[in-house]
């Protein structure tokens, strides 16, 4: 039965960046589809820890196993021990979702080298660290799914977005390189290209939101759960032949001139 192929029952997932709107929706969708889900923050900010804990509560409410961890996604030690904890507490690691979301926007001449490094450390190096750590259990299982959540800044530039644009494009091509490197090891590596979505860190103010509403082909932003559907497909057995791809869920924003 075709719909059974989407079920994630018996699989375990780790979502990093679960405090963000898209990360949180991915966690809920994975758990609804039957997976046990561990959730982690992007940074150790208290606000994120609270959000990650409430996210883990949703996993438990769906009767799935999981836990919340407050980590700095740019820390090699944090990421390594997180992945080890997933293997220890949930038994295995089938799905890694990298939804790292450290928002940052500034005119480039005002961006200090420290700020630049921090944005790249979290949003790009953090994804590398997570993929590298997850590779150990996935390679020994001979199977795994890595799903990197990226944004429109992969394909398009944006005023005041220099550091984020560089990091996002980096994640996209890291995705392609890893897909090829692990193509014959049973690990698929794909990206979900999230369009402008309600609750995205970078859309904090109401004014930029309204401007986007008018510009988008469908005249509305995505709801976070509309991004999460493809995560379930990518994580499932149905997507075994899908690798190295970005699947855009952006309401036609990239069709725009």
């Amino acid at each position: 039965m075709v719909l059974d192929q989407f079920s994630l029952r018996g699989k375990t997932a780790l979502v990093i960046g679960a405090a963000g709107a898209v990360g949180r929706a991915a966690v809920v969708a994975l758990a609804e589809a039957g997976a046990d889900v561990a959730v982690a923050t992007t940074t150790r900010a208290a606000r994120e820890e609270v959000a990650a804990n409430s996210c883990a509560n949703e996993v438990w409410a769906l009767d799935r196993k999981g836990f919340a961890a407050s980590i700095d996604a740019a820390s090699e030690a944090d990421v390594q021990s997180l992945v080890e904890r997933v293997a220890a507490e949930l038994g295995r690691l089938d799905v890694l979702v990298n939804a790292h979301d450290l928002p940052f926007a500034k005119p480039v001449q005002e961006v200090s080298p420290d700020e630049w490094r921090r944005v790249l450390d979290v949003n790009l190096t953090g994804v590398f660290l997570a993929c590298r750590a997850a590779a150990a259990p996935m390679l020994s299982q001979g199977s795994g799914r890595i799903i990197n959540i990226v944004s429109l800044l992969v394909e398009r530039g944006m005023v005041n977005g220099s550091a984020l644009c560089a990091a996002q494009a980096g994640v996209m091509n890291l995705t392609r390189a890893l897909a090829l490197e692990w193509a014959r090891s049973g690990i698929t590596v794909n990206a979900v290209g999230a369009g402008w979505t309600e609750g995205m860190g970078i859309l904090a103010d109401e004014d930029s939101r309204r401007k986007l509403d008018r510009y988008l082909p469908g005249k509305r932003l995505a709801r976070p759960e509309e991004i999460a559907g493809i995560v379930v497909y990518m994580a499932s057995d149905a997507a075994e032949y899908l690798t190295g791809q970005v699947v855009w869920i952006e309401g036609g924003a990239l069709s725009h001139v």
């Binding site: 192929q5 509309e226 493809i230 497909y233 899908l242 791809q245 869920i249």
Partner: peptide, 26 residues
């Protein structure tokens, strides 16, 4: 191709528009 096609035909892809899903082994 079946599950992919069902995904694109369903409400699960309600915000996907003008986009490509390439299933091709890398």
């Amino acid at each position: 191709l079946g599950p992919l096609c069902v995904f694109l035909a369903s409400d699960l892809s309600s915000y996907m528009n003008g986009d490509i899903l390439a299933l091709e082994g890398g």
